[in-house]
């Protein structure tokens, strides 16, 4: 079995706590937009950062833990199904985009935001059994791209941080 360094364990814990707090802060900020399903996706910041420092399996695991805990703390079963589909698809897409050359974490985050909203809309279409709400798709795609951009810009200084990079053995 591969040994996990103490540093990695600490980082996992910090990231899990970080994402939960971000999720909580998000619940506290009421958005003035009246369209259902629009939110900042602050917790995605933790996913992006852990994806860059701990790798794909860690990002997926942390994301899963975050969604389960966050739904237990602030949500219900219904919000769990939305978050789980949105969060996991967005995480998988971000892992894929990270492997494409030429994209920084901003591009990765944008794709994550868009994927998250598309997945949630798909769940809504299935759960509400109403195809007509799919017409919200363009709006949600644009909103996902914008929130993804903001989250990506926030993650950029963290990902670029020389000290963090060297302690995780990332050169370039």
């Amino acid at each position: 079995m591969k040994k996990i360094s103490t540093k990695a364990i600490a980082f996992y814990g910090i990231m899990a706590a970080f994402s939960l707090v971000l999720g909580y802060i998000e619940h506290l900020i009421p958005l003035p937009v009246g369209i259902y399903g629009i939110k900042l996706g602050l917790a995605n910041l933790a996913t992006v950062v852990s994806l860059y420092f701990l790798g794909a399996p860690a990002a997926l695991t942390l994301n899963f833990i975050r969604i389960i805990l966050s739904s237990l703390l602030f949500g219900n079963v219904l919000s769990l199904s939305y978050s789980l589909c949105g969060g996991m698809l967005s995480c998988l897409i971000m892992i894929a985009v990270k492997h494409i050359r030429g994209f920084s974490c901003v591009g990765v985050s944008i794709c994550g935001g868009v994927a998250h909203n598309i997945a949630q809309l798909a769940v809504a279409v299935i759960l509400l059994d109403n195809v007509k709400i799919a017409f919200y798709l363009p709006v949600l795609v644009i909103v996902g791209a914008i929130t993804g951009l903001l989250i990506g810009l926030c993650a950029l200084p963290l990902v670029k941080n020389k000290y963090l990079r060297s302690s995780y053995g990332i050169s370039e």
Partner: peptide, 28 residues
């Protein structure tokens, strides 16, 4: 932030706006 990120963002926004316009006219 790289040049590709900006291009990606523009493509997504333009595609979504086009889709919105198409749906809007289709519905009308």
């Amino acid at each position: 932030m790289k040049k590709n990120d900006v291009i990606l963002l523009l493509i997504i926004v333009v595609a979504a706006a086009a889709l919105f316009a198409v749906l809007h006219f289709a519905l009308a």
